[in-house]
Amino acid sequence: MRHNTINYLEIPVSDIAKTKAFFGQVFQWQFKDYGDEYTCFLDVGIDGGFYLSAKNFSLAHGSPLIVLCSDNLAITEASITQHGGKIVKPVFSFPGGRRFHFSCPCGNEYAVWSE
């Protein structure tokens, strides 16, 4: 733990099993379950977990954006759609790289970027 740093993210999802399957298949994430309503994601750049909730988040509702990294946007985008995600903002350029936004099968909005 480091003083005054972001240490952990907790993300609401409506279906733990569906979320684990999606992030496991698309991003090769591993998980550790704590009961039926919480799972931690392991070794993904920051510690955190998914908790069962009827809520979801998007930029349109003022939520922060969680941005994931990819070495190949086209391959990641194809994997997202193949495994039940939806592209909500196509690839665009910005200072420092390119990115797109997607929603996971539970409806939460994320982005993927590459240099």
Score class of each variant (00 low, 15 high):
R2L: 12
R2S: 10
R2V: 12
H3V: 12
N4R: 10
T5E: 15
Y8M: 11
L9I: 11
L9H: 03
E10W: 13
E10G: 11
E10F: 12
I11D: 04
I11G: 01
P12K: 05
P12Q: 05
P12F: 03
V13C: 06
S14T: 10
I16K: 07
I16D: 08
T19I: 05
T19F: 07
T19D: 07
K20Q: 15
K20R: 09
F22Q: 04
F22G: 04
G24A: 04
G24T: 05
Q25P: 02
Q25D: 15
Q25V: 00
Q28S: 13
W29P: 00
W29L: 01
Q30C: 06
Q30R: 12
F31I: 06
F31P: 06
K32P: 00
K32G: 00
D33I: 03
D36G: 04
D36F: 01
E37N: 12
E37H: 08
T39L: 08
C40N: 14
L42T: 08
L42H: 03
D43P: 02
G45P: 01
G45Y: 02
G45E: 04
G45S: 03
I46V: 02
I46L: 06
G48D: 01
G49E: 06
F50W: 05
F50Q: 05
Y51N: 02
A54L: 08
K55V: 08
N56P: 01
N56S: 15
F57K: 07
F57M: 05
S58P: 06
S58T: 15
L59C: 09
L59M: 14
A60L: 11
A60V: 03
H61T: 12
G62S: 11
S63L: 09
P64D: 09
I66D: 07
I66Y: 05
V67W: 13
C69F: 15
C69H: 15
D71P: 06
N72I: 07
N72L: 09
N72S: 15
L73A: 09
A74M: 10
A74D: 15
A74R: 09
I75H: 14
T76P: 01
T76N: 04
T76Y: 08
T76Q: 10
T76F: 07
E77T: 10
A78V: 10
A78T: 13
I80L: 09
T81M: 14
Q82D: 14
H83D: 12
G85M: 13
K86F: 07
K89F: 13
V91W: 08
V91H: 05
S93Y: 11
S93I: 09
F94T: 05
F94W: 12
P95I: 04
P95A: 09
G96I: 09
G96C: 09
R98L: 09
R98H: 13
R99Y: 10
R99V: 02
F100C: 11
H101L: 10
H101T: 07
F102Q: 02
F102W: 01
S103H: 10
S103Q: 15
S103A: 15
C104L: 04
P105E: 07
P105F: 06
P105I: 03
C106L: 01
C106W: 00
N108W: 07
E109K: 03
E109H: 04
Y110C: 00
Y110G: 00
A111I: 00
A111V: 02
V112G: 00
V112F: 01
E115D: 14
E115R: 13
